[in-house]
Simulated scan of single mutants.
Amino acid sequence: MPVSLSEAIRTVLSGSTQPLSPGQIRDQIKTLFPHLYQTEAHRVGIEKGNYQSFDHALLNPIYALVTRSSDFLVDRTVKPMLISLASEEAADEAPEENYESEQGLVYVLGTGLFTSSGMKIVKIGHTTQPLLSRIAQLYTTGTPFQFEELHTWRTRNYTELEQAMHRLFAPFRINRAREFFTEEVLLHVTAVAAIHASIQSARVVA
């Protein structure tokens, strides 16, 4: 059975004596696991304008996977960020995301938690799984309440929409290393998603 992207990333990192950037991981995967590079999904994504190149088509899901899975530790204090393997005890045993999928969900979830000033805390993320599966995955022993769906958008370039929201809503972010924000973002999420949808549906006229 062919090695998955997640397995390939783990293999690359386990063979390195130091953390690697997403670009370094991509370059090693191109050499060690060529079946994961220039795939049919990559070709289609480039033709539809989702990716700029084959390198971009491989880098994008690497970035999305390492920043979302507890299998990996991400050091965002440096640029480019550096990735290393988490301990086995911290590894996430949930099903892997399918980053070959052309579409995914960007979600805003209520957490049932509040800041010290009484503001609601929400989570902004993305998934290629059914939303209920993702919510169940997030409901761990360290989470006192099951998350609640507030907004979802099924879209192409879902990781770009999520990342745009994370950047735009940085003033409302509780912890730069986590995907949690104050409820103030709820005034703006629909507008940002609408702009993304408009861009995705636009056609370039030669």
Rank of each mutant, 00 (worst) to 15 (best):
V108Q: 01
L113W: 01
I135P: 04
V44A: 06
T140C: 07
Q200N: 14
S21Q: 06
N157G: 02
G23N: 10
R203K: 13
I199P: 00
P19T: 02
A194S: 15
E88S: 13
L13M: 04
Q103D: 09
Q52H: 02
A170K: 15
H166G: 08
L20S: 06
Y158K: 01
G15W: 07
P144D: 03
T182G: 11
T128P: 05
R134F: 03
E97G: 03
T11K: 10
E179H: 04
Q103S: 11
G23A: 05
I29C: 10
P144N: 02
W153E: 11
R10F: 01
E40A: 12
I121D: 01
S53P: 08
I25G: 05
Q163V: 13
Q24R: 11
A170C: 05
V44H: 04
P80R: 03
T31R: 11
T127I: 08
F33M: 10
A164V: 13
A136N: 15
M165L: 14
L113V: 00
E160M: 02
T115H: 09
F145S: 04
G45M: 08
P171G: 08
P95D: 05
T11F: 10
G49K: 05
A206F: 04
R68Q: 15
E149D: 02
L132M: 11
I62M: 02
Q18K: 14
G45L: 06
R178W: 06
T182W: 05
